[in-house]
Design a protein around this nucleic acid. Structure first.
Lengths: 244, 244
DNA sequence: AAGTGGTCTAGACCACCGG
DNA sequence: CGGTGGTCTAGACCACTTA
């Protein structure tokens, strides 16, 4: 392989980088087959083992999946809900039920100091706020606010969001940006009034504890893209994370 | 390498398995150096590349760490707190402060149906309950109950727990068992009275929401070992998880 | 300088999948 | 059957640490 990128990067890392760029450019959609290891090796002038190492790391990163005897394929865009599933508390081996997403609306606001810092924006930078409701067997269980830098996603159209599979799918389709969840925070809070209303928590029993989730997402190069805040009702359900 | 274990396992997986067994047996303590790749290759009759693949997977699993030019070392036992750190809500890049663990006591009880199933025990199987308090800058922030199958850990001594670095460290030192966190659940709950007392939540303001964490841990072969329940106060702190 | 892990190559064989 | 990914080998060179 010709030494085209930064010299101090190992070859397999350069291959990985190149493939990620091509994937971002939309060369392969979800479930499209990539060239075989040998074709890539010829094309890029590297050995098959080097190509394999790059592909393996992309599989680990969740960007590709492989099937013995068939080929290597582009993985679908991750959903807005994230890796964790909703399960009945205490049952770790339950099969997760499907969550249904409902787009509530898009609005504009200015970044607070915390959020501006996390997203590496100037103070009061304009943001898009995308609000979604999650239902489980019809009942609302979570409320999402996704905050995106407005300048990066200038031209975002609410209709795109209403008719797509979620924020991440829209960013991928309309802006060619692949999102990666960087870190998440959990804490317990009393459900604020506005969110309680949207989640259908009625009556004077306003003393409902909610699981509050914060998420920071970035593109494949690590540039922050999204600050997400979620209120989850966990009376009957719990957020379940499986480890390596 | 002689075909001694199950035939359908690839060689590198057998090497991995063997090294895990030796590690469990206490052959290498934390930060002890393992033999070099070439020494292992000679000893086990595999090639250096195969040994490397096994070692790499053990590094990914957190059992080993490697330093270029120096060697391969046994990783220290993970702490009881887990992977997630406590940070100020909304600040993802903060440096996590140290948590101080305090052993409160050990008692016995019988497994509920849920717990018996998760730990693959019969109903009402005897359990050890190990209670620990976590402090952050002196103030209590979390309360842990670790539930272990009493028969597996027959002879467990409370003094071991009081003077060790935690439950996992004790299991490793006294029983040669390496613990691996399988999955965790989060939900929001109002803090029950007993836990509120132990966490120093005083007065009539009993309406404190708490982050409730459930954890299922296992040994390296996947056999369930521990059910842990934790109540976290998250008024000023949040549970932060970083992703791959 | 010697020893270690990290990268890279070339070639081989196997297991699996599809037509 | 051919093509694919999965495993394994042997050998080479580099980068880093230690002495």
């Amino acid at each position: 392989m010709t030494a085209n990128t930064l010299k101090r990067q190992p070859l397999y890392a350069q291959v990985k980088q190149l493939l990620m760029q091509r994937m971002s450019g939309g060369e392969w959609q979800a479930h499209d087959a990539l060239p075989s290891e040998w074709e890539l090796a010829d094309e890029l002038g590297a050995s098959q083992g080097t190509i394999r190492k790059a592909l393996s790391e992309l599989v680990d990163a969740g960007l590709l999946y492989r099937q013995q005897g068939r080929g290597t394929y582009a993985a679908p865009v991750p959903g807005d809900w994230g890796e964790a599933s909703l399960l009945t508390p205490g049952l770790f081996f339950e099969r997760p039920d499907e969550l249904v997403r409902e787009f509530l609306g898009m609005s504009r606001l200015n970044a607070s100091e915390d959020i501006a810092e996390a997203l590496q924006l100037r103070r009061l930078a304009p943001l898009l706020r995308i609000r979604q409701l999650w239902r489980w067997h019809g009942a609302p269980v979570a409320l999402d606010d996704a905050l995106l830098p407005a300048e990066t996603f200038d031209g975002m159209d609410a209709r795109w969001l209403r008719n797509s599979a979620g924020v991440y799918a829209t960013l991928q389709q309309r802006f060619g940006v692949r999102v990666r969840v960087m870190c998440e925070q959990f804490r317990a809070e009393m459900l604020p009034r506005e969110e309680a209303g949207l989640l259908g928590v009625t009556g004077m029993v306003a003393d409902v504890p909610a699981l509050c989730l914060l998420r920071l997402s970035a593109d494949m190069d690590g540039r922050p893209l999204e600050w997400r805040q979620r209120y989850c009702l966990t009376h009957q359900l719990a957020y379940t994370v499986k480890h390596g």
